[in-house]
Design a protein around this nucleic acid. Structure first.
Length: 183
DNA sequence: CAATAGATCATCT
DNA sequence: GATGATCTATTGC
């Protein structure tokens, strides 16, 4: 593995304050941060922001239901759901209680514990690579086996912005952010 | 290459 | 009963 686990384990988890801000800021700031599940870790390189009831593409668009319940709680918790019957998607709840913003984590750069045979870019492959499923629904990302921690190293890439992928509504909103090497 | 179909199930109507 | 914030395999140029 490129990075020993002890090195990512030493990173500090992001505090609740980090998440309880506008969703778009949280999305951009998550880039470069370290996602750890048990002994597997990756560097976040692509995310998408999903806003509240105004965002037709967001699950919260149809209001508060059993599935979206965690989105209405405080920030810093994990929102996982199953798409197309076989893939899980990992989201980070943003904003304070009552405001259902969240950030979909779309791609990781493997750091340790991850078999890179199947790449871990794409929300479905990412959760499979980390071993995440519906059991982590509602998990606290500031403590426990599933955490988001500080960046391992400063950003050397630039943040690019574009439209979200794989959705049927609000397809032209520039809410997708990813890291790219400077040209 | 690009386009498309199929897998498969929790959640919502 | 319909619908996906997906991915893979397969078909057709």
């Amino acid at each position: 593995m490129p990075v020993p686990f002890s090195q990512v384990e030493a990173l500090l988890a992001l505090p609740r304050d980090f998440y309880e801000r506008p969703t778009i800021e949280v999305a951009r700031d998550l880039l470069g941060k370290t996602l750890i599940h048990r002994r597997r870790a990756g560097r976040i390189v692509e995310v998408e922001a999903y806003l509240s009831e105004q965002d037709r593409a967001a699950h919260a668009w149809s209001g508060r239901t059993r599935r979206t319940e965690v989105l209405y709680g405080p920030g810093g918790y994990c929102y996982v759901y199953l798409v197309y019957g076989m893939y899980h998607c990992l989201n980070v709840v943003a904003e304070t209680a009552g405001s259902p913003g969240c950030v979909l984590v779309r791609a990781l750069e493997p750091l340790c514990g991850i078999e890179t045979k199947p790449p871990c870019n794409g929300p479905g492959r990412l959760t499979r690579a980390l071993g995440i499923d519906l059991r982590q629904y509602g998990a606290d990302l500031t403590a426990g086996p599933l955490t988001v921690r500080d960046a391992l190293r400063p950003l050397t890439e630039i943040v690019q912005t574009g439209t979200r992928i794989g959705i049927r509504h609000a397809t032209d909103w520039p809410l997708r952010f990813w890291l790219a090497s400077p040209t």
